[in-house]
């Protein structure tokens, strides 16, 4: 075990869960990032405003974090640009085809006890672990 950060992981997890809970109680919506972003790619509607506002909150989070006096935690992207493009295509397409991502299925769906979300989360977790195993251990990337 290397770099295990149990306290900050739990605290951050509670914040993410609180965000999903508040969104359900106030707006009656699921805090699924791929669904919120994907919905923006359709024709503009009454939904457009809150979707942009939600994503703006996400994007501004590091600035607010720093503004509150926090020193930003390290963010390391070791993936090459061509691989980032390939991974991004797969993540975007897969999240829409599978009707959700880590937030929508993993946090919100499992929280509701949705069988679809349990299966989707189990699937993408297992496939991602396998992918890392192949790229890091077998190909040595």
């Amino acid at each position: 075990m290397d770099g295990f950060t149990p306290l900050s992981a739990t605290l951050g997890g509670l914040m993410i869960g609180a965000s999903a809970a508040v969104f359900l109680l106030l707006n009656g919506r699921v805090a699924g990032i791929s669904g919120i972003l994907g919905g923006l790619l359709a024709r503009p509607s009454r939904e457009t405003g809150w979707r942009i506002a939600f994503l703006a909150g996400l994007v501004l989070a590091p600035l607010v974090y720093a503004g509150l006096g926090g020193s930003l935690p390290p963010v390391t992207v070791a993936t090459s640009f061509p691989l980032l493009v390939f991974a991004g295509l797969l993540v975007g397409f897969g999240a829409r085809l599978g009707a959700g991502c880590t937030s929508g299925h993993g946090v919100c769906g499992i929280g509701r006890g949705s069988p679809r979300s349990l299966v989707a989360t189990g699937t993408f977790m297992a496939v991602a672990i396998l992918t890392v195993l192949v790229t890091r251990r077998l190909l040595g990337a």
Binding site: S34, L58, V59, T79, A87, G88, V91, A99, A128
Partner: peptide, 26 residues
């Protein structure tokens, strides 16, 4: 579709360690 989509998503997530929320946040 659910299973296929999740599997495709899993490959991308495993390649870069990025999913939609964190990608937008950073």
């Amino acid at each position: 579709r659910l299973i296929t989509g999740a599997a495709i998503f899993g490959v991308g997530w495993g390649l870069a360690g990025l999913c939609p929320g964190p990608a937008l946040t950073i």
